[in-house]
Nucleic acid binder design. Structure first.
Lengths: 234, 234
DNA sequence: GTCATTTTATGCGTGTGATCATAAATAAGA
DNA sequence: TCTTATTTATGATCACACGCATAAAATGAC
């Protein structure tokens, strides 16, 4: 399933060097409108970042391995998930364009806490640990916005943990939808369509597909959401 | 239950000003050995931080209210928890000496994600939002260690979420114990005694007391933990 | 268009943790 | 010491999500 990039250094030809000329012109077609850009792409490139186009399902790094890079999604999406021995998945987060992922190892030296997989055809840019930390050190404002991203994620985890532990399936799903609404992630910007499968909702809430399907139908009957042609609008 | 400190400014006489002379001498008796100090107390004091002695059960701030201060535990402990309408609690974290808490609002402007309550007789130091952000801006190294704390917390939340959603009660509890072992929090430093009640373990894992008690007994039968006089050693 | 694959949908028996009741053991205070 | 409150312990019943089977609907490839 895809190439394994858990090397201290990029494989030859995998991540493209950022020569001033070509830069991202090659993948303009993939670029989607981004409302929140973690770190400016051009800035990353001047600091020597490299990028790579990924096929759907391609693994970027695996849970438990050492991390030496800062990663940021340029276009497409990255699924950040845990897979246990029995094969059951927990989808921690779906990372959209402009967002970073897999930063923990850069700060605490521990291995990756989850596996990162390209959800669709995506472009990911990355920067070596040392360079990234230097960048943060030199740019307090960037560091501040990075801290903000971390706190927002932590806030969401707080909320989800609370719900996961106390609430019934419907509450869990509603909480997830609220998060989507706020983050405007995985939802068409024009409409309110939830753009992920019920299986993925199950993976993010710790429920089973059948339970998710049944709960969403209950939510519809209560008028909380609208279902058209199997798609959920909230 | 305690005084409410959710005011934009400290109540008169509540948080003590940090005059150079007395500073923390008044509460030396409360100070416990700290292995990890988020931000040096003296530095905080030079930046105009104020502190306060809290009785057990005293509320520091409430979930849903606005946050204008950076908080750090000097001595004792602070419980960071969610309480829902039906009164059921979820204990997000137990904050020990040297650790900060309730920082989300400082960065994203949203209300507190959880309520902070003094677990035992404690001393908490706090700094205004503006001053704290300035401090971070001026001290990249402190900002870096702060980021590290955030990532460590986020990592633990990742782990717990994964467990909460997938695993059985015994796994959940074992995960929590692992976290304690790593953080050496809420455990006697000399021995391995788990120093929190089963009710609190239940509050942190989303289980019921009875389930926790039964699960821990199962863990004992398997040799994973040792129980002496009702106390758990792991 | 047809066919294959994925996603959504529904029924039904089972298992497990929640819930309630009750009691023993430990801790805390006078 | 005795008394009270808190924590731990155990049994019995029940609700609810799980897990499996099966099928319909939607999506995608050709």
């Amino acid at each position: 399933m895809g190439t394994d990039f858990n090397q201290p250094l990029p494989l030859p030809g995998s991540y493209q060097p950022a020569s001033p000329a070509d830069s991202f012109d090659v993948c303009t077609g993939l670029q989607t409108p981004v409302d929140v850009v973690m770190i400016d792409i051009d800035l990353l490139l001047t600091w020597g970042a490299t990028y790579k186009k990924l096929e759907p399902g391609e693994i970027i790094f695996r849970e438990g391995t050492e991390g030496h890079f800062y990663h940021q999604v340029v276009s497409g999406s990255v699924h950040w998930l845990n897979v246990d021995d029995e094969g059951s998945e927990f989808l921690q987060e779906i990372i959209g364009p402009g967002e970073s992922f897999g930063e923990f190892p850069l700060f605490d030296g521990q291995p990756y806490a989850a596996t990162a997989v390209a959800g669709k055809e995506s472009v990911v840019i990355r920067l070596s640990k040392h360079t990234f930390l230097q960048l943060l050190h030199d740019n307090p404002c960037i560091h501040m916005s990075f801290t903000r991203l971390l706190t927002e994620r932590l806030r969401f985890k707080f909320l989800l943990l609370k719900e996961l532990s106390c609430a019934n399936p419907e509450h869990r799903i509603a909480t997830l939808f609220d998060h989507f609404k706020k983050a405007r992630k995985n939802i068409c910007s024009k409409c309110n369509r939830v753009n992920i499968t019920r299986q993925q909702i199950a993976d993010m809430t710790g429920l089973r597909v059948e339970t998710v399907i049944r709960s969403i139908r209950n939510l519809q009957e209560k008028g909380t959401v609208v279902i058209t042609k199997g798609k959920v609008y909230c």
